[in-house]
Design a protein around this nucleic acid. Sequence first.
DNA 1: ATCTCGTAGGTCAGTAAAAGTCAAAGTCAG
DNA 2: CTGACTTTGACTTTTACTGACCTACGAGAT
Lengths: 150, 150
Amino acid sequence: MRLSDIISERIMKMIEDSQNGIAEIGRNELAALLGCVPSQINYVLASRFTPEQGYIVESRRGGGGFIRITRVSVDRSSAIMHLINSIGERLDSSTARILVSNLLYQNLISTEAAVLINIAVSDKCYRDIDPNLRDTVRATVLKQLLLSII
Amino acid sequence: MRLSDIISERIMKMIEDSQNGIAEIGRNELAALLGCVPSQINYVLASRFTPEQGYIVESRRGGGGFIRITRVSVDRSSAIMHLINSIGERLDSSTARILVSNLLYQNLISTEAAVLINIAVSDKCYRDIDPNLRDTVRATVLKQLLLSII
DNA sequence: ATCTCGTAGGTCAGTAAAAGTCAAAGTCAG
DNA sequence: CTGACTTTGACTTTTACTGACCTACGAGAT
């Protein structure tokens, strides 16, 4: 396995573990740990943690220096999060369909995801559920599905 | 026997052995093994592992590069249909998770689809439903979702 | 306040390791 | 003989890795 992959995996893992999407590393420290030259870290950051890929990288030199990598999937995530918060306890099927179409139209979800979500919130799936309960389940299902693709 | 045939047989055998329809080769390595020039591998891939023939070829250059050949199940639909028919009236959540993992592993659904389906059949979505009814709803939901992606 | 020095990160060019491209030459069935 | 398919190899492009040298920050000394 490539050194670059090992380094980037390590950094991504640190970001995951951080819970707030931020990893702070010492360049020399990490390089020593993984047995590579320090500039290799820069290479990995430049090639796999670009803004285009949803990261911002900041750093400080000198004593106590560091490199901070922040994951910034803000746009999509916050738009979807906003939608999730706007869904109440109950959601009727036609409103659900409209919400999903909008997400697709705004390019926030893929066509495939849209198809699956549409089915999952359709009454086709709820025939065994008491009609009074369906809109409640639908709201839960849509929220859970959207949460999973944030 | 033609060189191309030997190469393509070798690759197909690797795909068979892989059990999940994916073979990853080093171009130069395979060429050396079979005693041909590396570009011959490209020729074989271009002529016999096309999308029309049910394969996806991806690659990466540079140090540690590779070529990945994925067989997309030609018979995806019928494999999924078969699974749908094997699901009874009720389906517990751990069985559901296993079914979905298998679909993903066999390349019959995408990672994104697997994530969504997993959520949609998880108890997270069914907290408002009478526990006795959950496995019934789960069976319906999974069948409907799979039907939608056929 | 300024100087100086140690500690860190940044840059860049060079080297190597793959894979991709393409056109020329070869082979073979019809 | 011809046209379609194969094979080859020279040249290109991309990606990975290294090391020498550069720049910035902080803290203690003057």
